[in-house]
């Protein structure tokens, strides 16, 4: 059994799921919205990246530098994701966020956007899966047994760098403070002059961008298709739950655990058992720690 391969696969999956889970986690804790349209954001961003990539690959400069094309495709995915996030916010958060039963209504509204949006993608681009161009060139690094291929190494690097930047921005800027304040206490946030609606747009653009990033990175392994977002949505949600909704560190740890679980299960038992072992693991963790992994990490008392 090739443990080097399992290890690298696990880390790659952990990076991608972590990115998704952090997006879901931030949306839930700051806006109180379970964003069921996250899967749609994911596939729409994939199509955005594919479309821009197809337009850009014939440009003179881009044809010479494959890495430039990669950067353009990643940027296109992130921007499309952010735009879709803003759209979801305008349709499913702004009109109903202060009405009764918002949590359920928000869930249903985002689910509706997801269903309609997926059909629109199907209508526009057809059911055939589309490949994205190779983003990170063609190279290989090996450390002893462990061989890092370009697609995996690039995915790991890109998600770690962009996530670190995002988290730094969240701890060091005024906007970041705004979002974190909303995550911890929306009522108090309005008392210091934070407008819920405006913050909603920032949050949804940020998390949409993260979904776009994850989408572009994951399509180095899978293809872009209208229904591509469903599995990542389920996995992102379960990682976010397992890590404890609202906790970024928890989501990262849960993503690593579930990434290893997926890589190990896929190579020892077979890919069809991945969801089974994953949910068994999540149930076990939630039984022991009902608040998820964050329950262990949290040093501060609530309320």
């Amino acid at each position: 059994m090739d443990f080097g391969f399992i290890f690298i696969t696990a880390i790659t999956l952990a990076c991608i799921y972590g990115t998704l889970a952090i997006g879901i986690s931030i949306t839930w804790s700051s806006l109180g919205l379970v964003n069921m349209a996250y899967g749609f954001t994911f596939s729409a961003a994939g199509f955005g990246a594919w479309y821009v990539g197809r337009l850009a690959q014939d440009l003179p400069l881009v044809a010479d530098y494959p890495l430039l094309l990669g950067a353009i495709v990643i940027a296109a995915g992130i921007v499309t994701g952010a735009l879709v996030g803003v759209m979801v916010c305008a349709l499913a958060f702004i009109p109903i966020h202060d009405k009764p039963e918002f949590t359920v209504r928000g869930l249903i509204a985002t689910l509706a956007i997801s269903l309609i949006g997926t059909q629109v993608l199907l209508y526009m681009f057809g059911p055939r899966a589309k490949p994205l161009p190779t983003l990170f060139g063609d190279w290989k690094v090996s450390f002893g047994d462990i061989v890092i291929t370009a697609d995996k190494g690039g995915s790991i690097m890109a998600s770690i760098v962009l996530l670190t930047l995002t988290l730094r921005w969240m701890t060091h800027s005024r906007r970041g403070l705004e979002i974190r304040a909303m995550m911890m206490n929306p009522h108090a946030a309005s008392l210091v002059g934070i407008g819920v609606r405006r913050t909603g747009f920032y949050v949804m653009a940020l998390t949409g961008g993260l979904a776009g990033l994850a989408s572009v990175l994951l399509s180095q392994t899978y293809f872009v298709s209208p229904f591509a977002g469903l599995t990542p949505l389920i996995k992102g949600l379960s990682v976010a739950l397992c890590g404890g909704l609202g906790s970024v560190q928890g989501a990262v740890i849960a993503a690593v655990i579930l990434g290893f679980n997926e890589a190990l299960t896929a190579s020892f038992l077979g890919g069809q058992y991945v969801l089974i072992t994953q949910f068994l693991l999540i149930i076990a963790i939630i039984l022991v720690r009902p608040r998820g992994i964050a329950g262990i990490l949290d040093r501060a008392r609530e309320a």
Partner: peptide, 10 residues
Amino acid sequence: PQGDEIFHGL
């Protein structure tokens, strides 16, 4: 406000 309404993690 009454009851402090703090951001417990900041």
